[in-house]
Amino acid sequence: MTAVKQRVEDSDIDPNFKYELANILGEKALLHCFQCGTCTSSCPVADDVDIKPHQVIGMTLLGLKGKLLQSKTIWLCAACLECAENCPRGVRSFYLQSVLKNLAARANNLPEGIREEGEIILTTGLAIPISSGILKRREKLGLPDLTPPAAETFQKIAEVTGLASLLSKKGGKEK
C-alpha cells in the first residue's frame, strides 16, 4: 500500500504548499510535473522507498505537507541526480526533495546518520575526523602537512543559519 493511495482528509491538504516550495526553489518547474515517472524509473533507491520520487512530487502538488514532512523515505536518497537530469519537464526532483528535507529536519524528522554528519561538518569543518594513522600514511607518501580548517568559521555559519541548535539535538532531544 503506497502512501498516496491512503484516504486523504481536507485537513491534510495545504493548497499553498507547492507555491511555498516553488518559491524556495526559485523556479516554477515543479508545478509542471505530469507524473510520467521518469524520475522514479531512473532512481536507484526507488525499490526501497514506500513513497516513490514521482509520488513525492504528486503529493507536493496535492499539498500533503504533513504526510511528506513526517515521511522517513524522503531521506533515503543516493544524491545521484538522475531524477534532476532526466526529467522531461525540468522538475529538479533532487532539489525539491532537498528542500523537503530542510523542512522535515525542522519538523523533528531527521535521521541520526545525517544529524551526526552535519554536526561533525559544522563543528569541526571536516566531514571525517583526523586520525593519527592517516597522518602517518601522508608522511610516508611524502604529502605536505595540512592546515585544518578554522572550526569557528563553520560553527559561526551553523549558528547564523539556525542549524547549531538543530544539530545538537541527539535523537530529537537536547544533549
Binding site: 544524491a79 528542500v99 552535519g118 561538518i121 566531514a127 568559521t153 543559519t161
Partner: peptide, 21 residues
C-alpha cells in the same frame, strides 16, 4: 595549497539540513 579550506558542504548531508548553510 588552500590554507584553511574545509568540507565542501557534502552533496548529501549539509544541503539536506539547510541549503543556505
Amino acid at each position: 595549497e588552500m590554507q584553511g579550506a574545509g568540507c565542501c558542504s557534502d552533496p548529501a548531508a549539509t544541503p539536506a539540513l539547510d541549503y543556505k548553510a
